[in-house]
Design a protein around this nucleic acid. Structure first.
Lengths: 190, 190
DNA sequence: CGCGACGTTGATTTGCCTCAACGATTGTGG
DNA sequence: CCACAATCGTTGAGGCAAATCAACGTCGCG
């Protein structure tokens, strides 16, 4: 079984041989999840790393005041996991919820290790992916510190229009770091 | 020439053979930089990746209003670079300044590529380092969204007392995302 | 149908910013 | 080594962006 979407995604980053491509796919299992179901809940250990085939997910924390902080959304072509929990085998502080009926490919911790050993390019692949991720997080931090709520909202909706259109205002506001009431007021002025 | 501090740091993450350790060190060059000098200025291409031997650095951006946003500080044992500029060979948006007379080991882009080819474990090493980095950035985002300025200040000074003690209030406040006047008022109440 | 989650709006509050002034500290050139 | 400038930390007055709280109509779902 070859997962074309996964292979196409990987080929944008590293070159694999046909044999490696097939071997790599063997480590992944397809799975489906229903709208509103949780792929991971805080307190659980994240035993998987996921690659989204379709649908949409939201990853968030709950702080002591009960507020949700959305770390990121994931749609087709995105990776999904709690890195800290996955790599250190410790209870997660994150929740990952499907916002729609979704499909993804998952790989377990032990299979991930086997993958790294079986296919050396996999180390490079994920090294580059994590590098890009760090850059994205740095940019997000700077935006949060230097832009107003309205500017952040406009940036988000123009950069990720497909994702933004799937979200409720409450989900959007928890990503932007503002209240949903205030988001409503921002939207009114434009 | 073997750089003990670098090797000790790497050994906490991956195992290298003695031969690999020596080969790895050969790719790094020691360099010194004076207090207040810039290791990188925005607009330049980041041609190095650095490992700090001693001293202290600050990495920050300047937004259009002229405000500085400090991304991170780096002391002994930390890595230092603009990942985006380094990996994509494009002009940097970051400034890296030495806060004290400092020493570091640097490796060029081409040598970094050679290193990855010569020592396969290097891919794993940096893959793991970047993974940890993503986790740290995620945590920072959540703190910024869910904690008050005072709580962020207390978290920072208690988690990084050695770094915090070296900084001016203005540097600290640009890391916390507040004005230096407000930081002064926070300090007064405790 | 009825309930719960949602988006909206207004009144009020608050955390933090802006601007301006001041003394203290640091650095620098003569 | 001193004088001066620059940068710093502090403080206060005032202002603004965003939070809080509460009320209300709407919608989708069971």
């Amino acid at each position: 079984m070859k997962y074309d979407l996964l292979i196409a995604h990987i080929n944008k980053i590293v070159r694999l041989t046909k044999v490696e491509e097939e071997e790599l796919c063997r480590y992944f299992q397809p799975m489906s999840i229903a709208k509103k179901a949780y792929l991971l809940q805080q307190g659980e250990i994240c035993k998987f790393e996921g690659f989204v085939l379709n649908g949409c997910f939201r990853t968030f924390t709950l702080d002591k005041k009960g507020n949700e902080n959305t770390l990121f959304f994931a749609t087709k072509d995105w990776w999904l996991m709690d890195i800290d929990s996955f790599m250190n085998n410790k209870p997660s502080e994150l929740n990952i919820q499907a916002l729609e009926d979704s499909k993804l490919l998952i790989i377990s911790q032990t299979d991930k290790e086997k993958l790294y050993e079986a296919i050396p390019s996999a180390e490079k692949l994920f090294r580059i992916m994590f590098q890009k991720s760090v850059v994205a997080w740095q940019r997000r931090l700077v935006r949060n510190q230097s832009l107003s709520a309205k500017e952040r909202y406009q940036h988000f909706t123009s950069k990720y229009p497909e994702i933004a259109s799937k979200l409720t205002d409450r989900q959007t506001s928890s990503y932007l770091g503002i209240t949903h009431e205030f988001l409503s007021k921002i939207k009114r002025e434009c």
